[in-house]
């Protein structure tokens, strides 16, 4: 059976995540900042009495921060015993993959190269196939510092 993909929009691009890695899609209520943490840590948010660590996906890609006040739509990703919420601009769809992911032939762009594991075809479209965990890891320390 073909892999299910969750298509989300991050920094204007449509990105496919393996749906098996995503626990839920949520709209976050409020954000508690974490002063002193890495720039891609947007803060903490609560989901049904669980604390989510919210990842600013644009910062994780080393792009400019999103304008504040946007809706806090996020995909919930469990990782290493903790639960993270990766902020996305929108979640478009969940579709079946049209094949296996294939490597890039050309660079996807700074930041993207680190999160994208390749390309994948879905519904006649070629999408960036990304690993949500690499958003959580954030930019390498030397860059962040």
């Amino acid at each position: 059976m073909a892999e299910l993909l969750l298509i989300a929009r991050i920094a204007g691009r449509r990105v496919a995540f393996p749906a098996s890695q995503i626990e839920a899609v949520v709209e976050l209520e409020g954000l508690t900042p974490v002063p002193g943490a890495a720039p891609h840590i947007a803060g903490l948010s609560a989901l049904r009495s669980r604390v989510l660590t919210v990842i600013d996906s644009r910062a994780a890609l080393e792009l400019a921060h999103a304008a504040p006040g946007e809706a806090l739509e996020a995909i919930v990703v469990p990782s290493g015993g903790h639960t993270y919420a990766v902020l996305v601009e929108a979640v478009d769809d969940v579709v079946e993959a049209g094949g296996d992911p294939s490597p890039f032939q050309a660079p996807a762009g700074a930041g993207w190269d680190r999160v994208a594991t390749g390309m994948i075809e879905a519904e006649g479209e070629l999408l960036l196939f990304a690993d949500p965990h690499s958003f959580i890891a954030g930019p390498p320390l030397s860059v962040a510092a």
Partner: peptide, 27 residues
């Protein structure tokens, strides 16, 4: 109190997270 996620702990000044009465996370 619950342990905070590693990127939060990496800040070096937090011991964990908890939820306040209003449901907001507190460090």
């Amino acid at each position: 109190v619950k342990p905070a996620a590693p990127p939060v702990m990496a800040a070096g000044i937090y011991a964990g997270t908890t939820l306040a009465d209003d449901g907001k996370p507190v460090l």
